[in-house]
Write a protein that binds this DNA or RNA. Structure first.
Length: 675
DNA sequence: CGTAATCCCTTCGGC
DNA sequence: AGGGATTACG
């Protein structure tokens, strides 16, 4: 623990009840959590009674493995690290009698929307008039529960934001009963079908623990210390989950108000300002010495925060001292942006002795990186992507999972629809008819029997279910069985890219399944593991996958997925008007401030070299950047002090440029020999 | 009548 | 890229 500074050490060895560590970017947040865990274990705390909570599985597994590494060989036991959701899932699964969850299926947003659609039924027209689609209803419902707002407040905030006060009551009276009846039906459906959505996973655990002392006693025996990362991103629902543990555990929370970027999920960073008020017997420590970045990079980051109307009470000091100035790169479009980045990386790699993984590319959203990825492929630069769609959300995997889901819970209507219509010859109508029967069966065996006699599905359909049902304790065998019988149909359904893109996922799925002996647990954990991808699955041991494994690769990440990441060279992509802040944030000061924090998180990832690219002629920027490059006031880099960065105007022809045509239009030889 | 094929739209971010 | 609505097909 010698590498800790005084304040970090003070935090790691804290002897009071609860602690909040307010730690700015790059101040050693992760290191402090790790040191805390190691310290507790060295003081004799049973490692299994330490629970680490993080926002991503990647962060969890990184912290756990680093704790393991710094303790050496000595102990077989380790603290567990999970996301809030995955932790709740394990509690629900391990203590079914405490929570009343003997049999359940976790559903994702798409499933929620499907249920909402079923529930809306004949009221579709009414909602069309209000422009309330099922997806919007799911949004409202989730927002209400994550922020613990009632329906009236939720509608007022999310729907009637710009309705004048005197009309508000009228609008509410018109809309609220309608929404209420739908949401009640939605909840009824969840109960009937034993569905839990993501929010339920937390809500159910939180409710029980808050209300039932006996439940607190049972669960409390398992945990002594909760170490919570990214505290600024916890929302009121998660606070409700943590609250009962104030009595039975020690809380060690780490967070940074300036890096709060999950308000869309109901997080409110002001909660950590009120930490002492909300948590009895709590203390607050601060870490403000930044070990990551050069002072030039911090100057830019600090400037951005200073411009805020909010007071983050934060000014990080650079321990490392001075380096090189960040650069703003003005590029005409996304392709030039990509070529610039590729050229820079190749230069660093070939001439400056840097690795690919010294480079991190940060984007506001996944789709701004599309052309960049194409260019990297063209230039043969290896890369990994973080964020965006997960492994399990791919259609072909959802198909296979629908089979697991119906075997796991034969009330799972949504999975039945997907599974039945997967097969040739069964459409929605037949599926609906079958499902009427299937959900009244006792178990999957009865379902299989009924399908054999009463359906027109192919032989493989029945075999798939049988194959899974007979391998319930060997999940990898179940995966192989299901894949075997579904393969032919899968290959047909996804002809275009089956061989090269989709088929290779199945050996990986089998490997993943090897770690599980319970179907329900497997299904949920896969669903919750957003980072499960070929190249970076914490669940999969690296050695288990040889193919396509690039040890050294550039990381392309959304800012939201880049929490805790850092790199020597960072490219912050497309810092253009209408992106920072984004077009849909304009006019809403809280959203603009959140976007500011998103950019702040991005800027503070860089250790040595920071490139900020700006597209001067993207469709978004067109109307907002004048010809000399200055921007409209609704843009963070407006008024940017020139001395903080170097500006570069970059434009490079992709190939050899040819000024005058040397070939006539369409004057080709098509090469056909007609003789 | 039920299923398959085609076009169109998505509004970021993620457990 | 995937799902929804619409249209074509059997």
């Amino acid at each position: 623990m010698s590498e800790l500074n005084t304040n970090q050490l003070k935090a790691a060895q804290f002897e009071g009840k609860h602690l909040l560590v307010l730690a700015g970017a790059g101040t050693g947040k992760t290191r402090t959590i790790i040191a805390r865990a190691v310290y507790l274990i060295s003081k004799g705390v049973d490692p299994s009674k330490i629970q680490i909570l993080t926002f991503t599985k990647r962060a969890a597994s990184e912290i756990v493995s680093r704790v393991k590494a710094s303790m050496g060989e000595q102990s077989g036991k380790n603290p567990t690290g999970s996301t809030f959701h995955s932790w709740c899932n394990q509690l629900l699964y391990n203590f079914p009698n405490v929570f009343g969850t003997a049999k359940f299926t976790i559903i994702d947003e798409d499933d929620q929307v499907s249920i909402m659609k079923m529930v809306c039924g004949n009221q579709k027209e009414a909602f069309k008039k209000l422009r309330l689609k099922p997806r919007k209803l799911v949004d409202l419902y989730s927002f209400a529960r994550n922020t613990k707002r009632n329906l009236t407040d939720t509608l007022t905030v999310k729907l009637f934001d710009d309705v004048p006060e005197n009309e508000l009551e009228e609008r509410l009276a018109e809309v609220k009963p309608l929404v209420e009846s739908i949401l009640r039906k939605y909840e009824m459906k969840k109960r009937e079908r034993k569905y839990l959505d993501y929010d339920d996973m937390i809500q159910v655990v939180a409710n029980r623990l808050n209300k039932d002392p006996k439940a607190r006693q049972i669960i409390g025996k398992k945990y002594e210390h909760l170490l919570i990362d990214e505290m600024q991103d916890t929302n009121p629902l998660q606070w409700e989950l943590i609250r009962p543990f104030q009595q039975i555990c020690h809380l060690f929370c780490v967070g940074d108000d300036a890096q709060s970027i999950y308000a869309f999920r109901g997080a409110d960073f002001k909660n950590i300002h009120n930490f002492k008020k909300n948590v009895k017997d709590a203390e607050v420590f601060r870490l403000e010495e930044n070990y990551r970045s050069t002072s030039e990079i911090l100057d830019v980051s600090n400037w951005l925060l200073d411009k805020s109307t909010l007071n983050y009470e934060k000014r990080l000091s650079a321990v490392r001292g001075s380096g090189i100035k960040p650069k703003i790169i003005n590029v005409p479009n996304e392709w030039e942006e990509g070529y610039f980045i590729a050229a820079k990386i190749i230069e660093n790699f070939t001439e400056k002795d840097k690795e690919y993984n010294d480079h991190l590319i940060l984007s506001r959203s996944q789709n701004y990186t599309r052309s960049l990825q194409a260019i990297f492929i063209e230039k043969k630069i290896p890369f990994e992507t973080y964020g965006g769609r997960s492994f399990m959300e791919a259609a072909h995997l959802k198909d296979v999972f629908s089979a697991f889901r119906v075997v796991n819970n034969n009330l799972d209507e949504i999975a039945w629809v997907r599974f039945l219509t997967f097969w040739e010859g069964i459409g929605e109508i037949s599926a609906a008819k079958y499902i009427q029967e299937l959900i009244n069966k006792e178990d999957i065996e009865e379902c299989i029997q009924w399908l054999e006699e009463g359906s027109k599905g192919p032989f493989e359909m029945i075999e798939t279910l049988k194959g899974i049902a007979s391998n319930m304790d060997k999940i990898d065998k179940a995966v192989e069985a299901a894949y075997g019988t579904m393969q032919a149909r899968l290959a047909m359904k996804y002809v275009q890219d089956w061989d090269k893109k989709r088929k290779p996922d199945f050996p990986i799925l089998t490997l993943l399944a090897r770690n599980y002996s319970n179907l329900s647990e497997f299904i949920t954990e896969c669903l919750l593991d957003n980072s499960t991808k070929i190249n970076n699955s914490p669940t999969l041991k690296k050695s288990e996958i040889q193919e396509n494994k690039e040890e050294d690769a550039v990381i392309i990440s959304t800012v939201h997925s880049a929490k805790g990441l850092e790199a020597s060279t960072c490219f912050v992509l497309n810092v253009s008007p209408k992106v920072y802040p984004s077009a849909w944030s304009l006019g809403d000061i809280e959203k603009v401030e959140e976007d500011r924090r998103v950019l702040y998180v991005a800027l503070t990832r860089a250790k040595d070299e920071l490139f900020i690219t700006r597209r001067t002629s993207s469709i978004y920027a067109e109307d907002h950047v004048t010809e000399d490059g200055s921007a409209v006031p609704t843009y963070f880099l407006n008024e940017f002090p020139e001395e903080l960065t170097d500006q570069v105007f970059y434009s490079q022809e992709k190939g050899e440029s040819v000024d005058a045509p040397i070939a006539n239009d369409f004057d080709f030889d098509f090469g056909m020999d007609f003789s």
